[in-house]
Design a protein around this nucleic acid. Structure first.
Lengths: 158, 158
DNA sequence: GGCAAGCTACTCGGATACACGGTGTCCGAGTGCATGGGG
DNA sequence: CCCCATGCACTCGGACACCGTGTATCCGAGTAGCTTGCC
């Protein structure tokens, strides 16, 4: 899995602390990561419609939806792509004992098992929303944690 | 995910059709894949203890356990390694608002969500055994399917 | 005919090149805000 | 005092190198079985 997923999720959590646009550079120095590379992940979120980018002097990124309606799966699919991890090569249709293509109406058992596991994985990620992550943060670091982040984001210099 | 997983699973299914050792070259030409690369996957299965390799003229690979006790998860972990797909970088401990290390007793919410999804994925793969895959094959291609494979493996030339 | 030594051929196992996707970086296009001048 | 044109600084967006992991391959070490010669 792409490491940028972690950055993107942290950014989504941070963006819930404020309504104004936050530039990528701010998010980068807040997390102490490469600004250029983080921009790539944010662009992916923008293409997926999870965040909206506003340009100009006071521009940046804003969440488009309520945090409760954004799931972790949304972010993962936006950054890593919607493709499945496992792809069936149809080995059963190759070799001297290849099964004819007309008998391959149903997917091969291996592909089915993998697809089932992938569905379970996605379902688990779909069950967690950005709001849930924020709730866990305030439970661990105290209620003013998110407020401190929002305040830091508004200060001119980091 | 590594593409060799698919090859390894097909090999495990094929190995259930016969008790004698099957060389890697036979498995390769049966599936019409690279023999050298398939050997690497079989070595991984051997290191994990799922198959046993016998050397010499009539050597090859044999399953060590009953197919019903070998799960798809076993094969996946043997080939792709036991490591998780997602690894937490502990971003929360970096940057100007880093949370102190003493407050990080519990894993961060993002890592927990990912770990939960990974557990669900593994559980789904653990629920499917090689025997289940074989049963699906005979249901789709008819009872003599596995017998044909076993017969082909015993013929001198492919 | 039985047995043992030697040979052969076949097997696995690890060490070795190549390629592609993820990682990281950079600069150009576009836009909203601030400023200064005019009415 | 209000409005508008101008400039600017800041933002995103996509295009460009680099590296690590997976992909593919090869050759050497080792062993079981067959052959052959001898007793």
């Amino acid at each position: 899995m792409s490491g940028g997923v972690e950055w993107a999720l942290h950014c989504c959590v941070v963006l819930t602390s404020i309504e104004e646009p936050v530039p990528a550079t701010k998010l980068a120095e807040l997390h102490d990561v490469s600004a250029s590379y983080l921009a790539k992940q944010l662009q992916a979120l923008s293409r997926a419609g999870l965040v909206r980018s506003v340009q100009g002097k006071a521009g940046g990124y804003v969440l488009t939806r309520e945090p409760a309606s954004i799931t972790v799966l949304d972010v993962v699919e936006a950054v890593d792509g919607p493709g499945q991890a496992f792809t069936c090569t149809e080995i059963r249709q190759r070799g001297p004992l290849a099964t004819p293509a007309e008998s391959c109406t149903a997917p091969c058992p291996i592909a089915r098992a993998m697809a089932g596991a992938d569905a379970a994985w996605r379902e688990a990620l779909r069950a967690v929303s950005i709001t849930d992550l924020v709730q866990d943060v305030v439970s661990a670091s105290g209620p003013p944690a998110m407020a401190r982040i929002g305040a830091w984001l508004t200060t001119p210099e980091g």
